[in-house]
């Protein structure tokens, strides 16, 4: 098995899907000639031609709107939004149209669409290149939202998203692109959407998280192990639908839950996970459910110290988990 970076795993996944299914087209700003601003789609236009890897105008509503039309008419588009921060011009198309066409047409039409977008901060991207936007979409029935946290999951979730007959938002963390590496099988495999993954088993505290924070949580868990605190890490992988069973299982096991996300606190995925636990596992809880998230300030600051203060870090996770273990 080859060791790939998170970015390479996504690129190999895209290549494999396009080789397998000629209906797939890639579509977005600078994805063709330049191979994307992060080089995720590098080489794909050369391999598959200008008709399948298309440089689009700088117009997100049009990218998603035309992709919906293409999907309804039989193609399998994988449009890219260059930064998740730029997805908002397209939100009307995603929420009002893509999410609802199957329902509105009583099943006559559906939208097999995968929207890829790099998200997240900690890379000096400041206001317009650092946001986490998953909670906006996780709120919407009719959408699926996945956020891989490892190269292996990145490739498997991409294949599952492409295979899905309905719209899937696929958020990839830009800080993970080159920092995370891991074994990735060459053959195609699917990671079912809505299935969480227990990345580490533990006894005292459960950390429930997703995306880049999975690797941070694992780092924190390693450090805490030296202190005799045994931490379990559940990677949600999909934030809609949530793997309720896995969430409840780990909560019941340890009785102490720390939910971590980089997105800001209020109205985030953590609130939903927390509600599920208190509804269904109250009598197993030995401590209040704790959330660790970015502060409720308008956006990621540019200043390095402020950015560091804004970001959830392995150290912050470690300290919070320790506090919870000692509660």
């Amino acid at each position: 098995m080859a060791e790939l970076s998170y970015l390479e795993a996504i690129r190999e996944g895209l290549r494999q899907e396009m080789e397998r299914d000629s209906r797939i087209i890639i579509y977005g700003e600078d994805v063709g000639v330049r191979g994307g601003v992060f080089r995720v789609t590098e080489g794909l236009q050369k391999q598959f031609g200008e008709d399948r890897v298309i440089d689009s105008p700088l117009a997100e509503a049009a990218i998603i709107g035309t992709a919906i039309g293409a999907a309804v008419n039989g193609l399998r588009p994988i449009p890219e939004i260059q930064f998740a921060d730029f997805i908002f011009p397209a939100i009307n198309q995603i929420v009002q149209e893509a999410a609802r066409i199957r329902y509105r047409s009583n099943g006559a039409f559906h939208v097999p669409l995968v929207i890829r977008a790099p998200f997240g901060g900690g890379v000096h991207g400041a206001l317009y290149h650092s946001q986490s936007v998953e909670a906006f979409f996780a709120h919407v029935p009719g959408l699926k939202v996945v956020v891989p946290g490892t190269p292996y999951d990145a490739k498997g979730l991409l294949a599952a998203a492409v295979q899905d007959e309905d719209p899937v938002l696929y958020f990839e963390h830009k800080a993970a692109y080159r920092s995370l590496k891991g074994e990735v099988p060459e053959e195609r495999y699917l990671i079912p959407i809505g299935q969480a993954d227990l990345k580490r088993e533990g006894q005292h505290v459960s950390i429930i998280t997703y995306g880049l924070m999975v690797s941070y949580a694992l780092k924190a868990a390693e450090e805490l192990e030296k202190e005799g605190i045994s931490v379990e890490v559940l990677d949600l992988r999909s934030v809609r639908p949530l793997d309720v069973e896995a969430i409840l299982e780990t909560s019941k096991k340890t009785g102490k839950v720390l939910i971590v996300h980089e997105d800001n606190l209020t109205g985030g995925i953590g609130g939903e996970v927390s509600a599920l636990i208190s509804e269904h596992a109250l009598f197993y809880l030995d401590a209040p459910i704790v959330r660790l998230a970015a502060p409720d300030v308008p956006a990621m600051p540019y200043s390095a110290p402020l950015e560091h203060a804004f970001m959830v870090t392995p150290e912050k996770i470690r300290d919070k988990a320790r506090e919870l273990a000692k509660f």
Binding site: G255, L282, F283, Y284, L285, D286, A287
Partner: peptide
Amino acid sequence: AAAPQEGRGRYSPAVRR
């Protein structure tokens, strides 16, 4: 040994169960 009294009688749901 020197447990304060204030927490007395306040138990988590798991402890009660």
